[in-house]
Design a protein around this nucleic acid. Sequence first.
DNA 1: GATCCCATGTAACGTGTTACATGATTTT
DNA 2: AAAATCATGTAACACGTTACATGGGATC
Lengths: 208, 208
Amino acid sequence: MVSEVKAQLELFFKNWFNKDRKPRQTGQKGLSIIGQRNRLQYIILGLLNQRSQTGYDLTKAFDHEIGEFWQAQHSQIYPMLKRMETDGEITHQDAVTGEKLAKKVYQLTHKGRQKLEAWISEPSPELTATKDEFILKLYFIRSADDPRIPAMIHEQVTLHQAQLDHLHLRMATVFPDQAAIDAAYGHYLILEHAIERETQYLAWLNRH
Amino acid sequence: MVSEVKAQLELFFKNWFNKDRKPRQTGQKGLSIIGQRNRLQYIILGLLNQRSQTGYDLTKAFDHEIGEFWQAQHSQIYPMLKRMETDGEITHQDAVTGEKLAKKVYQLTHKGRQKLEAWISEPSPELTATKDEFILKLYFIRSADDPRIPAMIHEQVTLHQAQLDHLHLRMATVFPDQAAIDAAYGHYLILEHAIERETQYLAWLNRH
DNA sequence: GATCCCATGTAACGTGTTACATGATTTT
DNA sequence: AAAATCATGTAACACGTTACATGGGATC
């Protein structure tokens, strides 16, 4: 009885006093596969480090440039930009398209660039869960003779073949020569990796 | 002019009448890579379809069985089980370990089994963003001579080699013979896929 | 009796998605 | 003039993680 009341009181006062951000420590889990801790800000820093751009430009970059690796909608990006500017990692200049269409061109501050470099330099000791819905469905199919398997595989072949075609196209357009590769080596590496990944995925699908 | 007023009126009445839960349609985006729409419930249905078990058992399954494909903590699982029971997809029996340690053994209802089958049968037309932090960091490295690259790659080699070893071990223990494969064919396929994926990842890493 | 595992929950918060909301510019 | 694209925001809600909280059972 008494302890219940005590616990509730403690909770009340804790809530009362801890209005501001709590620093949470990471928690070591070895080979664990864990979730996301605001990686979005780092990706925005990285994109802005490549060139100054607007929130709208960043939104399109998530759609087209790095869509295979990260997703973000403008409703997430605009508030994040405000927060990062408040934190002193980025600043913006106002610009105008045409007569009066206002836009904000963001760029890194020194602090932002340091934060980006620190992020890149720190370890990445975690694996990420795949979250491939087709794979999950397959997991729950017991029998090799299940009549749904052929159509499911065919659908995925179509999907991943389209993705592979898209990646090949991007490789050809973004990296037409060695100079382009030298100018964005990491980008080249991950495109290569993505192509190999899709190729292997398709080979596996086509084998079954 | 008129059309503007009309649109605002429409919006007003829409907001006025739609106080309760809005049914949200999926929104076709072609080859888009979109987010999660409560897949957890289906995974729980699938796991319970394999055998009746407790929330604790399910939590462990997420840690060990399907950790490569989906993650969930017990703090997410227990509320989901309650919700699914309210929705009539699962039921539970109370059981006791030892003298008085209560536990709840959940199993599918007919409705739950139907929902699971419907989910497996519906299309999976979406690709999933990878969200691999190492890949993101690499994307932002411009130069092939960047001094951080070797250590980054070495770290990932260690990580993915450990994962591959783990997958090989699971393959050997879960599928020691053809009978085991026949009893859980989908599980076999995705383990095979995961091993190939890690093998390819490692080959790519070791090449650079 | 200490430690680890079994077992179930809630609270707080951060992240991500969809929908709402508005207006300018360019293209067809 | 209609449609698509540029451009920026907020609101509501769903999802996911970490932390808080409690207690029984088994093993050393």
